[in-house]
Design a protein around this nucleic acid. Structure first.
Length: 174
DNA sequence: GGTAAGATCAGC
DNA sequence: CTGATCTTACCT
């Protein structure tokens, strides 16, 4: 169950201009899924070592995505455990976007799959409680104060907030 | 064609 | 606090 997400928009001139988004500079390369139909998996490599996953949102042609930042592992805990360092606590199995993908074994091979198709290797379904709390996104240096991170209250799987060291001081223009 | 920075994480 | 390590963007 996803317990923490972040919203990412698109290029200037679109409905949700967002300098922090991979789609900000228009379609090309890794981000093409963001510009396609909604409900597809957008995976990208982070810092050369981790894989992070989003679901594309917005109509076909309009870039937007939601990054999966943390999840509670409800089924297959033992399997998830084998994909994470020995001794990882259960609440930490899917805490953080890179860790979440590791625990669920989401890789770059899953780039672009339809999350709502029955035969997909990765699936998504609705039904979690409402995300009541929001705050600034983690680690972004652009639009660093925009409160587009959402999480479930009281969940231990939610990751810690860390502002990017490259982000301007609070209250900077956005 | 080179280089630096990044929607990170774990281990010291 | 730092190193690991790959992709892209933005120079020259």
């Amino acid at each position: 169950m996803i317990v923490e997400v972040e919203a990412y928009g698109g290029p200037p001139g679109g409905p949700w201009p967002d300098a922090a988004s991979h789609s900000f500079r228009g379609p090309g390369g890794r981000n093409s899924v963001m510009f396609g139909p909604p409900g597809r998996l957008y995976t990208y490599r982070s810092y050369g070592i981790h894989v992070c996953a989003n679901v594309s949102c917005g109509d076909d042609g309009t870039a937007a995505g939601v990054l999966f930042r943390a999840a509670a592992i409800e089924l297959g805990v033992e399997i998830a455990q084998t994909r994470r360092p020995e001794g990882t606590r259960e609440a930490s199995l899917g805490r953080g976007p890179g860790n979440l993908c590791a625990a669920l074994s989401i890789s770059m091979d899953d780039y672009g799959v339809d999350l709502f198709a029955a035969d997909s290797p990765v699936g998504l379904k609705f039904g979690a409680p409402e995300f009541g709390i929001s705050g600034p996104r983690v680690g972004v240096s652009q639009a660093a104060d925009r409160p587009w991170r959402f999480w479930l209250a009281g969940r231990r799987e939610v990751s810690a907030y860390r502002r990017s060291p490259r982000a301007p001081a609070m209250g900077g223009s956005d």
